[in-house]
Design a protein around this nucleic acid. Structure first.
Length: 764
DNA sequence: AGCACGCCGACT
DNA sequence: GTCGGCGTGCTC
C-alpha cells in the first residue's frame, strides 16, 4: 500500500483519507495502472540508454474546438517519416495518429521554441514548449506500411485550413474506421494477406466502342489541357464512355498510374459501377460508406499500395491515398451531395480541383462532368479558369421531351394530380410505355390536422410537422426520428375528424393504383405502380429489386422523390411528371431554382432514352410539370432544354445581388438549448471581428434563427459572412477562430452547446 | 470527440 | 447510504 500511495496523485491521497474506500480503490487502480505499467516499445533493446531518441509531431483525431487543433509532440525511440501511422497515448486512451512533421533531435533544450518545420505550429507557437520530461512516447509505429505521401498531407492540410478544421480531424476521418478502432493484430493480418496476393492482373482486353467526334474531342482535351475540364454533356451524350476511355488510355500509357472517379451516390448508379467493372475488372475498387469495415479497409489499402488502379467512390473518396493519381473525374459535378453536411464540411468537387493542382507537375488531370453544371463551374469556365467542352448530341435517344405545363391556378383548389396528367399516364401505360412521377415528399401526407380546431401534428422536439405514414400507422418526424401512433382524435379538442393535409409519395402511389385499377397493359395484365424513396429503399435489396422491376417492365409507373431522377437508364420511359413543383420555385433558399432546373433536366433525361422504342410505337416523349407559375422564366429555358440560357439568366441575377459565384460565403452556426443564447453568442462573435484582418472586405449579416430552428430539442441560429474577395474572408475566418474558442469558454458561451463554421455553405 | 471528475436527485 | 444524470475540463 505505501508504494501505491506514493505514486498516487494528491487527489487520490485526499480521497483515501476521506474514507471512501470504493472511490479510492477506483482511483488507485487507474493511477497505478497508468504509472507502473512499463512503456512498451517497438525497440525494447535500445530503450535504455536512449540512443536515437527523437521528437515527432503527431496529429490525432481531435476536432478544432477541442483546443488540441495542432500537432502534438511525442518522444520516439526511432526516427519516423512524415505520414507514418502511429499509436500514441492521449490522456488515458491509446489513439491512432499520423506523423505530421519532420523529426527533430530529442535532446533539444526543453524551453526552446518548437523547431519542427511545421508552419502552423510556428505561427501559433505560444505555449507549445512542453518540457521534455513530460513528453509521452510513441507506443507503436506502422513502419511496414508506406507512409501517407506528401501530396496527400498537403491535400489534408489545405482542406483543414480552408474549412477551418484541425488537420488531425480531417486526416484521421479519411482513414478507414477499421484502422482507427480495430485491434492492431487484425489490421496486420489484413495487410499481410493483401500483400501476399498476386499482383492485380491487367485490365481485361475489352473492345471499347468507337467514339463520336464530340467524344473524341473531349478525350483529346482531357489529355491536352492544363486546366480543369468542364465536360458539358447532355444526358445520354456518352460522358461515361469518355471517362472510361480517358482512364483506359491513362492506364495503358503509365503502368502505375491511378484514376479517381467520384460519383454523387454510388447506390443510385449501379450501371456506372458495372461499366467500370466490365472495362477494368479487378483493377477497380469502390470507396463509400456502404462498405463493410473490412471491405473499406481492403479497398483503402489497395489504393494506398497502388494495387487498385481505379477508385470509384463517393465524396469521401477524395481523401483516398492514391500515390500515383493522374486523373480525377467528378461525375454530375453540380450534385449537392459532394458537399459534406456534417463534420468537416468540405466540398469534394472543390478539393478535386485542388488535388489535381497539387499533382499538376506529374500531369494529373481533372474533369468535371454535368448536363447542368453548377453555376460556380459554369462561371469559372466563362472566365477561362476551366476549359469547357460541349457534348450536346444525345446518342440513340429520341428528341428531347416536350414540356407540358399544367397551370394549377385553373385546377380546383387542392388538386394533387390534374386529370389531364392522369389521362396521359394512363394512355402511355395502356400502350406498354412507362411513366416516372416525381414528388419530393415521402410519407403519406406531410402533416395531419384537425378539421374542427385547426390543430396540426407538430413534432414535440422540432419546429417541423410530423409526417403521416399510413402503412405503419405512425406520425414520424423526418428530422429527429420521433415516432408516435396516429391519435384517434384531436389532442386539443377531442374531435375525431383528423385529416391528412397535402400529399406524399405513399398517397400518390395509392391514388394512382386506385385510378388505374381497371386499366390493362397491352398483354392484358394489370398495371403496377412502384415507389422509390428513402422509406422504400430502407430494406436491404429493395432498391435493386425495384430498379430491376422497372427495367424488366414489371412496373409501369414509378413514383418517387428526386432519387428516381438520377443515373438510371430506363429504356421504356416516355413520360416524366413533376407533381409538386412550386415549393422549390419560391423557397427561401436562393439556390432552389438552380436545383429545380437541374432536377427537371435530369428527370427529363430519363425519358426517351431508346429512340427506336419511341418511334416504333409512334409515341412522343413528354415532361409534364404542374405549377401555378407557368410563366416563370425557368420554364421557358426548360422547354428548350437550354441550360446556357438558364445559367446566363441566373448568373445575371446573382451578379446583381452580389451572390455566389460573385461573392464567397461562410456561416457561423451555433446551437443551444435556448434560442436567445445562440443568438447572443453569435452577436458577440460578430462584434469580435471588428479589428480582424480582411474585415473591411467582409459583410456580416445579423444573426438569425435557422429556417428549421429547432431539431431534436436544440435551437439553431446562424450568422452569414460574405465577401467578394475570398482571401479576405479566409483571413478573417482564420483570425476569428481563436477568438471564437475564447468566446465559447467565456461567460458569453455559457449554455452554448456547439458552434461550427461552414465555408461555402450550400444549405441555409 | 472521449473520458474523466464532480456535484445534485431517486432508489435498493 | 449508493446509482446515475450531464455540466466542466483536459488530453503532447
Amino acid at each position: 500500500m505505501p508504494i501505491i500511495w506514493a505514486m498516487c496523485s494528491s487527489t487520490c491521497y485526499a480521497r483515501l483519507s476521506d474514507g471512501h474506500p470504493q472511490v479510492a480503490n477506483k482511483v488507485i487502480h487507474r493511477t497505478v495502472g497508468q504509472r507502473i505499467k512499463p512503456v512498451p516499445s517497438s525497440a525494447p533493446g535500445v530503450c535504455e540508454p536512449p540512443v536515437e531518441r527523437v521528437r515527432v509531431q503527431v496529429v490525432v483525431a481531435t476536432p478544432a474546438y477541442s483546443g488540441l487543433d495542432r500537432s502534438l509532440t511525442y518522444d520516439s525511440v526511432q526516427p519516423l517519416a512524415p505520414g507514418t501511422l502511429v499509436q500514441v497515448p492521449l490522456g488515458r486512451r491509446q489513439v491512432l495518429g499520423i506523423v505530421w512533421g519532420a523529426c527533430t533531435p530529442g535532446d533539444t533544450d526543453p524551453g526552446a521554441p518548437d523547431p519542427a518545420g511545421n508552419e502552423s505550429d510556428a505561427a501559433n507557437g505560444q505555449a507549445r514548449s512542453t518540457p521534455m520530461t513530460t513528453l509521452r512516447t510513441v507506443e507503436d509505429a506502422w513502419t511496414d506500411l508506406p507512409p501517407l505521401d506528401e501530396r496527400w498531407r498537403a491535400l489534408v492540410g489545405f482542406a483543414a485550413r480552408y474549412y477551418q478544421r484541425a488537420p488531425g480531424e480531417i486526416a484521421l476521418a479519411a482513414l478507414p474506421p477499421a484502422l482507427r478502432t480495430g485491434p492492431a493484430a487484425r489490421w496486420r493480418r489484413q495487410l499481410q494477406r493483401l500483400m501476399s496476393r498476386p499482383v492485380t492482373p491487367d485490365p481485361p482486353a475489352t473492345v471499347a466502342p468507337s467514339l463520336t467526334d464530340a467524344q473524341r474531342a473531349a478525350l483529346a482535351a482531357i489529355e491536352a489541357s492544363d486546366r480543369p475540364l468542364l465536360l458539358f454533356g447532355a444526358t445520354g451524350s456518352g460522358k461515361t464512355e469518355v471517362y472510361l476511355q480517358a482512364t483506359a488510355r491513362l492506364l495503358a500509357r503509365d503502368p502505375l498510374a491511378q484514376a479517381l472517379i467520384l460519383v454523387p451516390e454510388i447506390n443510385l448508379t449501379p450501371q456506372l459501377q458495372e461499366r467500370f467493372r466490365q472495362r477494368f475488372g479487378e483493377a477497380v475498387v469502390t470507396l463509400h460508406s456502404g462498405l463493410t469495415p473490412v471491405q473499406r479497409l481492403q479497398h483503402w489499402l489497395a489504393a494506398h499500395m497502388g494495387r487498385a488502379r481505379v477508385v470509384l467512390g463517393t465524396r469521401m473518396a477524395i481523401f483516398a491515398s492514391l500515390p500515383r493519381l493522374r486523373l480525377i473525374v467528378v461525375d454530375e459535378e453540380h450534385d449537392p451531395s459532394y458537399k459534406s453536411q456534417e463534420g468537416a464540411r468540405y466540398s469534394a468537387r472543390d478539393l478535386a480541383i485542388y488535388r489535381a493542382h497539387l499533382g499538376q507537375a506529374d500531369g494529373c488531370r481533372v474533369v468535371l462532368g454535368s448536363a447542368t453544371p453548377s453555376l460556380e463551374s459554369w462561371q469559372a469556365a466563362a472566365l477561362g479558369r476551366y476549359q469547357r467542352v460541349d457534348m450536346t448530341e444525345r446518342m440513340g435517344a429520341a428528341p428531347w421531351p416536350r414540356l407540358r405545363l399544367i397551370d394549377m391556378r385553373l385546377q380546383p383548389r387542392g388538386t394533387a394530380l390534374a386529370p389531364a396528367l392522369l389521362h396521359a399516364i394512363a394512355a402511355r401505360v395502356a400502350r406498354g410505355e412507362q411513366a416516372l412521377v416525381l414528388l419530393n415528399r415521402r410519407g403519406y401526407a406531410p402533416v395531419i390536422g384537425c378539421g374542427h380546431c385547426g390543430w396540426k401534428s407538430g413534432c414535440p422536439h422540432c419546429s417541423a410537422y410530423l409526417v403521416f405514414h399510413k402503412s405503419e400507422r405512425l406520425l414520424r418526424c423526418h428530422h429527429c426520428g420521433h415516432r408516435t401512433p396516429v391519435p384517434a382524435a384531436c389532442p386539443d379538442c377531442g374531435d375525431p375528424d383528423l385529416q391528412p393535409l397535402g400529399q406524399g409519395t405513399q398517397q400518390l402511389q395509392e391514388r394512382l393504383e386506385a385510378e388505374l385499377v381497371t386499366l390493362r397493359r397491352p398483354d392484358g395484365t394489370p398495371v403496377r405502380i412502384g415507389r422509390l424513396d428513402a422509406d422504400a429503399v430502407r430494406a436491404s435489396g429493395a432498391l435493386e429489386r425495384t430498379l430491376q422491376a422497372v427495367h424488366h417492365g414489371e412496373i409501369d409507373v414509378l413514383v418517387g422523390t428526386q432519387m428516381i431522377a438520377k443515373g438510371h437508364d430506363f429504356r421504356r420511359i416516355t413520360l416524366v411528371a413533376s407533381v409538386n413543383t412550386d415549393g422549390a420555385l419560391f423557397a427561401s433558399d436562393w439556390r432552389a431554382p438552380e436545383r429545380l432546373f437541374t432536377l427537371l433536366m435530369q428527370a427529363s433525361g430519363r425519358a426517351g432514352r431508346d429512340a427506336a422504342f419511341v418511334s416504333e410505337r409512334g409515341s412522343t416523349v413528354e415532361l409534364w410539370v404542374q405549377t401555378a407559375h407557368p410563366n416563370h422564366p425557368l420554364f421557358a429555358a426548360l422547354a428548350r432544354h437550354d441550360y446556357p440560357a438558364f445559367a446566363a439568366e441566373e448568373l445575371q441575377q446573382r451578379r446583381r445581388a452580389g451572390m455566389p459565384p460573385f461573392s464567397h460565403q461562410a456561416l457561423l452556426r451555433a446551437e443551444a438549448r435556448q434560442l436567445p443564447v445562440a443568438l447572443q453568442w453569435l452577436q458577440q462573435a460578430s462584434e469580435a471581428t471588428a479589428d480582424l484582418p480582411g474585415r473591411p472586405h467582409v459583410t456580416l449579416y445579423a444573426p438569425v434563427p435557422m429556417a428549421l430552428t429547432r431539431v431534436a430539442g436544440v435551437e439553431r441560429a446562424q450568422l452569414l459572412l460574405e465577401s467578394p474577395h475570398r482571401p479576405a474572408l479566409q483571413a478573417l475566418l482564420a483570425a476569428w477562430m481563436p477568438r471564437l474558442h475564447a468566446l465559447r469558454a467565456s461567460p458569453a458561451g455559457r449554455g452554448l452547446l456547439r458552434w461550427a463554421i461552414d465555408v461555402d455553405p450550400l444549405q441555409f
